[in-house]
Amino acid sequence: MDNLARLLKESWTLVEDDRARLTDHFYARVFLLDPALRHLFPVQMTGQGDRLLEAIIRAIHTVDDPETFAEFLRALGRDHRKYHVDDRHYATMGTALLDALRRIAGDGWNLEYDQAWREAYDAVAALMVAGAADDDGPPFWHAEVLTHKRYGPDTAVLTCQALQHPLRWQAGQYVSLEVPRHHPREWRNYSVANAPNDDNVLEFHVRSPGAGWVSGALVRRVRPGELLRLAAPMGSMTLDRSSERDILCVAGGVGLAPIKALVEDLATFNRTRWVHVFYGARQAADLYGLDGLQELVAAHPWLSVTAACSDDPDFDGELGDIPEVVARYGPWTAHDCYVSGSARMVRSTLRVLAADEVPPPHIRYDTFGDL
């Protein structure tokens, strides 16, 4: 396994700077090999290649951790049921991927790299097929939007109720979501912002400062009564209920969503662990979830919340980027740590925790974009 991981990472350096051509060639080859596959993908393929690469990069970096590798790929196989992917499609995808890698790598490619990718892809496909086969739930859930509230021009909090079948998730997980009325076959991941409940009601926090299709529709166009589609929950930023360590939660912007779910879940059983939540944004107006957090503080003496603004000198609270504020209150060496927010914010917070010598197994994070 060590040699396989080395070959994958080594060969990836030949193509990682030419990702656009890699994905263009991959999808062109897929649709040439099996034109019927085109209808499984959105009309506009913008961003589709990025998600493919995220999955490949994640697999490369977990191949030398067999347990994480297997867990991730089984979950990915379950998730791909929403695309109506079946077993025979994996062979087509594998052929297209190897062809794209050879073409973009050029003369640097060799037989050893080729065999490593064949072996890795066979393992990936087998685990994904097994994950899909083991899942007895539906490929996706229809969910009715119950409430929709805007916070400023680009943020919304909405709730929806999964219909027909129970949807089981853990606090800290995310689901893939489609808005079929506006953007069919476009799926995006969103963290569930509330703890599991018997009513099948899920809350989502969405921000769309630009022209993102799915997020834009969720913020500006979706209304109560509309139907969404939700795929099976994924993610491992979940609570370690066997731990007795106190807890640090760090949230930036709509990264508050999984942190809020974790705190709500803790409220159902926690009696002994102190929980410290740090919540940051640029302006006070962007701290849309602060009132809800303060209500939780009033109800639970083990919970504290520290809010911070990085670009609002009139804010009556901590000033500065949230990782800087977290560092002022440390050290956090003896805590279980949960971090959620933008890639930059997560990177900076992980550096703070590393300086405090927090053991990596005690850190779980969720980031929007590549680290």
Rank of each mutant, 00 (worst) to 15 (best):
T62A: 13
T62E: 10
T62V: 10
T62Y: 10
T62Q: 13
V63A: 11
V63R: 02
V63D: 02
V63Y: 07
D64C: 08
D64G: 08
D65I: 08
D65S: 13
D65C: 08
D65L: 07
D65M: 07
D65A: 12
P66W: 04
P66K: 10
P66A: 10
P66Y: 07
P66F: 07
E67N: 12
E67A: 15
E67M: 11
T68N: 04
T68M: 05
T68G: 05
T68F: 01
F69R: 05
F69D: 04
F69Q: 05
A70K: 04
A70M: 04
A70V: 02
E71W: 06
E71C: 12
E71V: 11
E71T: 13
E71N: 11
E71P: 00
F72D: 14
F72A: 09
F72Y: 11
L73C: 11
L73D: 03
L73I: 09
R74E: 11
R74Q: 14
R74V: 00
A75R: 12
A75G: 02
A75C: 01
L76N: 00
G77E: 05
G77Q: 03
G77H: 07
G77R: 04
G77M: 00
G77C: 08
G77N: 02
R78N: 02
R78D: 00
R78I: 13
R78Q: 14
D79Q: 15
D79L: 15
D79E: 15
H80W: 01
H80E: 05
H80R: 04
R81V: 09
R81Q: 14
K82I: 06
K82H: 06
K82L: 02
K82R: 15
K82V: 06
Y83K: 08
Y83T: 11
H84S: 14
H84C: 06
H84L: 10
H84D: 13
V85M: 01
D86C: 07
D86G: 06
D86Y: 07
D86M: 01
D86W: 00
D87G: 08
D87F: 00
D87Q: 11
D87V: 13
D87P: 03
R88L: 06
R88H: 12
R88M: 11
R88S: 15
R88N: 12
R88P: 01
R88F: 06
R88T: 15
H89P: 10
H89V: 08
H89G: 09
H89K: 00
Y90F: 14
Y90M: 06
T92W: 05
T92C: 09
M93S: 12
M93W: 04
M93Y: 09
M93K: 03
G94M: 02
G94D: 05
T95E: 15
T95G: 04
T95R: 12
T95Q: 13
A96N: 08
A96Q: 05
L97T: 05
L97K: 06
L97R: 01
L97M: 15
L98C: 11
L98N: 09
L98Q: 12
D99G: 13
D99L: 09
D99T: 15
A100R: 01
A100W: 03
A100T: 00
A100I: 02
L101F: 08
L101V: 12
L101G: 00
L101S: 06
